[in-house]
Simulated scan of single mutants.
Amino acid sequence: MDTTPDDQAPDPATPSAGSAPTLQQVVDLAEELWPSGLAEPWDAVGLVAGRRERPVRTVHFAVDPVRAVVEEACDAGADLLITHHPLLLRGVHSVDAAGYKGEIVHRLIESSCGLLTAHTNGDSAVGGVNDVLAGMLGLQDATPLKPAEDGLPHEGLGRLGTLDVGTTLGELAGRLFGLLPAVAGGVRVAGDRDGIVQRVALCGGAGDSLLDVARQAGADVFITADLRHHPASEAREAVRDGRPYLIDVSHFASEWLWLPTAAQALQRALADRGYDVEVVVSGITTDPWDFVLTPGG
């Protein structure tokens, strides 16, 4: 006979210690951490595949939902793969497994592994890609380069902040090189190696759309990825004193830095609610370049 008093009965809404959340509950927590409303209008974020009622015991994080990453997650028995980049960004009319994206969708579904994307919302959120990069460089009083229209004051694309002590462009580039995962492209720099920089603008991933914003903000240097020839050349020609200098890094590397922080934030949020979930960061390098040739190299 149950003799537990009514006022001591367990709350059915409270998870028991060590229980697994549903996919929907993980999606809800992801929405709190990286609100989908922060995503750019052209972006495609949120749940891509998965049954929302299924339990989640293992989550994998990665930058790209490429075949090797999906195989790693599925082979490990992951219930959810969270990637920064979308798998299906543009209109899709078929997921025929003969195509590589269709094959990935089938592999995920057949392995009961969900897929969730946190892209430009993961860039703009507090504690997101740009905050992590700014924090690792030691920027003080960092604010968004492009504030979110309907977000909090510290939400938005890119960051602008100040180093405690000015340093040379060469030293800053070297510091970045040491922080980023090693990839073939390395770090490219435009500007006076010995020029002193202190006011820093940055944008993880492709940020050439913010070149003018960085210049107007009075940045000494702008750090981003995927700088194309013409935008970079025109940005350099448009300024008389050479500033902002430009540092071009790997798109993958600049965003990978966020993964451990994102994984820790999600695991902490799950643990705070009594859930026991293993959260893993993929160690697979998904930068598309394998090697580079340089003069004298």
Rank of each mutant, 00 (worst) to 15 (best):
R175L: 12
L87Y: 01
L116V: 09
S112A: 14
A118P: 06
E149N: 09
V132L: 01
C203E: 08
L87C: 01
V200L: 00
H84S: 02
L202R: 04
G195C: 02
L139P: 07
L179V: 10
V200I: 14
G99I: 10
E149H: 12
L172D: 10
P181F: 00
G122T: 04
K146S: 14
V132G: 03
A98R: 15
P86H: 01
L133C: 04
T143H: 05
R90G: 04
I82R: 06
L108N: 04
K101M: 01
T83V: 05
I109L: 14
G174R: 11
V95R: 02
I104W: 00
A182P: 01
G122W: 03
T168E: 11
L180F: 08
L152F: 09
L115V: 11
E103T: 12
T168A: 03
L108C: 02
L88P: 01
A118C: 14
G161P: 03
L179N: 07
G151K: 07
H154D: 15
L172R: 12
G166V: 04
L172F: 09
A184D: 13
V126K: 12
A142F: 05
H84P: 02
R159C: 06
G170W: 08
M136L: 15
L172T: 10
H84F: 04
V95F: 03
H154G: 12
V200K: 01
G128W: 09
T120E: 10
T168H: 06
N130F: 02
G178Y: 07
N130E: 05
L179T: 06
G178K: 08
A97G: 01
S111G: 12
L115H: 14
D96Q: 09
L108W: 02
A184W: 13
D194C: 08
E171P: 09
G135A: 15
L116G: 03
L80G: 05
G128A: 11
C113H: 04
L133A: 03
A125V: 12
V197H: 06
T167I: 04
E155C: 07
G166R: 14
I196W: 13
L81K: 07
P86D: 01
G128L: 06
G174A: 12
N130K: 07
D131I: 02
I104Q: 06
G114E: 09
S124G: 05
R188M: 14
L139D: 09
T143N: 00
Q198N: 07
Q198S: 08
G151D: 12
E103R: 15
A182D: 15
P153T: 13
V189S: 05
L137F: 07
L108E: 06
G127N: 08
T143W: 00
A148H: 13
L157W: 08
G128N: 13
R90T: 12
M136K: 14
T168M: 02
V187M: 04
V95K: 00
D164R: 15
L145C: 03
P144N: 10
T167H: 05
L157P: 06
D192H: 10
R188D: 15
R193T: 14
L172H: 13
L152N: 11
V126S: 13
D192P: 03
L163Y: 07
V126D: 13
L137T: 13
T117N: 08
Y100P: 14
L116Q: 14
T143E: 11
S124L: 02
T117W: 01
